[in-house]
């Protein structure tokens, strides 16, 4: 399962819900304001790092760059472009968007 999160973790609890209900071995892609969750010093840093033992986390770099957050991404989070986004969607049998 690919989970897509597009809300800021300091504005909504979407990422929390996602982390609570995502199974081990699944994938999370952070896009739009969701990319704030991928940044060092942000409110989601510790939770996300803990989850990364079992879950692979990606962030969409055009959205990071738009927000000026490209230089503060948590180590271990892989950045993808729009083609990478498509590859992630194609790689999993289903997708859940946490709106």
């Amino acid at each position: 399962m690919l989970h897509i999160v597009n809300k800021s973790p300091s504005e909504r609890n979407t990422l929390d819900s996602c982390l609570r209900m995502a199974k081990k071995g699944s994938t999370i892609l952070l896009i739009e304001d969701g990319v704030y969750g991928a940044t060092k010093g942000g409110v989601a840093e510790n939770k996300l790092k803990a989850a990364m033992a079992d879950i692979k986390v990606y962030a969409l770099w055009p959205d990071l760059e738009a927000r000026g957050m490209q230089d503060s991404v948590i180590d271990g989070i892989e950045q993808v472009d729009y083609n990478g986004f498509v590859d992630l969607v194609a790689a999993d049998k289903n997708v859940q968007s946490w709106l």
Partner: peptide
């Protein structure tokens, strides 16, 4: 305040997302 502080973040570059960078 809150996520509003992100409005003022340096280094915003919106070309790839096709939006206007108003920072």
């Amino acid at each position: 305040a809150d996520d509003g502080v992100y409005e003022l973040k340096k280094g915003q570059a919106t070309k790839s997302v096709g939006m206007k960078n108003f920072s």
